[in-house]
Design a protein around this nucleic acid. Structure first.
Lengths: 161, 161
DNA sequence: GCAGATGGTTAACCAGGTTGTCTATCTGGG
DNA sequence: CCCAGATAGACAACCTGGTTAACCATCTGC
C-alpha cells in the first residue's frame, strides 16, 4: 500500500493542529502574552461562556476540579481572571475575566483566524471550507469522551462579548 | 461568524487526530497490546526506519535523548525492542525490533488504515484523498515534529491504569 | 595521545493531569 | 429546627512525559 496510510493521515492532522497552535502561541508571546498556552485560552473561553467557578470549569472541560483550579491559578497569577467571593454562597469564588483576559481572547481569536486565512490563501478558501466541512462530518459523530467538540465547540463559536 | 473560526479549525484537526488515535489504541489493547500509546508506536516506527540508538531516536523524534531513553525503556520492558551492545562501538546499545514489535507495527498500521477506510466510507474516498492532499500542502514537511507536547500527551494517555 | 564530541545513565525538576482527604458551607427532609 | 448529605474549594501525594544538568565511558581527528 502506497503513500496513503492511516498513520500518515493521523500525523497530518496532528501536524496541522500543532502548526496552528504553535504559530498562535508564538504571536501571542510577541504581544505580551508569553507563557499562555492553548489550554489557558480554551479555559478562559469556557469561563467567558459561563463557567464561573472552579468546579464548574472542571465540569465543562471534563477535567477534575483540582485540575481546573490549577489552570485558574495560572490565569489569576497572570491577571487574566479575578476570583471574588460570592455574596450568595460563601463557599464559592466567582470567576471574572479581567480586561487583560478579554484582550487575550480577542487577540487569540484574531490570531487563529489569521492562520486560517493564511491557509485559505495557500489552498483556496473554498477548498479550506470543504476541508472543514468534511472534518466536521468525521469528528462530530462524537467519540465517547471529550472528543473536544462536545465541550468546546459551542463556546468557541461565540465571542466572549 | 462562529461558523469558520480558526480556533474551531484547530479543534477539528485535534479532534480528528484524537479520534483516530483513540480508536487504534483501544483496538490495540484488545489485541494484546494494552498500554501502548501512539508515541510508542511512532517511536517503534522510527526505530524500524533506522534509528538504532537512543540518541538517534531522540533526534528523529526531536526529543531529548533522555526522553527517548524513557520511551525505549517502555518498549524494552514490553518486549517490543531489544538492546544489544554494538561490537563496533562500546558506547552504543543497538536497538532491534523484536518479533512482537514487528507484530505491533503491522497491527497498528492495519488499524490506522482501517480507521482511514472507515472515514473514506463516511465522506467518500476521493474527498478523503483530497483532504489529505490539502493537509499535506499546509503542513510544513520540513517541520514534521512527531513530538507531542506535554499538555497534549496527557490527553493521549490512558486513564485506565 | 589527547581534546573534544558522542552515547548512555542518573537525578532533579516542571507541567498538567489524577485520586484521596479535609474543611466550610449550603440545602432539604424529618 | 436540625442534622445528613451534597457541594466548593484547598492541599497533598502521585503519575506521566517531557526538560536540563552533570557525569562517565568511549570513540575520533588533529
Amino acid at each position: 500500500m502506497p503513500e496513503s496510510s492511516g498513520a500518515e493521515l493521523a500525523l497530518l492532522l496532528l501536524g496541522g493542529f500543532r502548526s496552528m497552535v504553535d504559530t498562535v502561541q508564538q504571536e501571542l508571546a510577541e504581544r505580551g502574552h508569553g507563557g499562555v498556552r492553548p489550554v489557558h485560552e480554551f479555559a478562559l473561553r469556557a469561563i467567558g461562556a459561563g463557567a464561573d467557578t472552579a468546579s464548574d470549569l472542571g465540569r465543562r472541560l471534563t477535567v477534575s476540579k483540582q485540575a481546573a483550579a490549577k489552570t485558574i491559578a495560572f490565569l489569576e497569577a497572570n491577571d487574566y481572571v479575578r476570583r471574588e467571593s460570592d455574596p450568595d454562597d460563601a463557599r464559592r469564588k466567582r470567576l471574572r475575566i479581567t480586561p487583560r483576559g478579554d484582550e487575550l481572547l480577542t487577540v487569540g481569536q484574531a490570531l487563529f483566524n489569521d492562520v486560517r486565512a493564511q491557509w485559505g490563501q495557500q489552498i483556496g478558501i473554498e477548498e479550506l471550507e470543504m476541508l472543514e466541512a468534511q472534518l466536521a462530518k468525521l469528528v462530530d459523530p462524537g467519540h465517547p469522551r471529550l472528543s473536544i467538540p462536545g465541550w468546546l465547540a459551542s463556546e468557541l463559536g461565540e465571542s466572549v462579548s
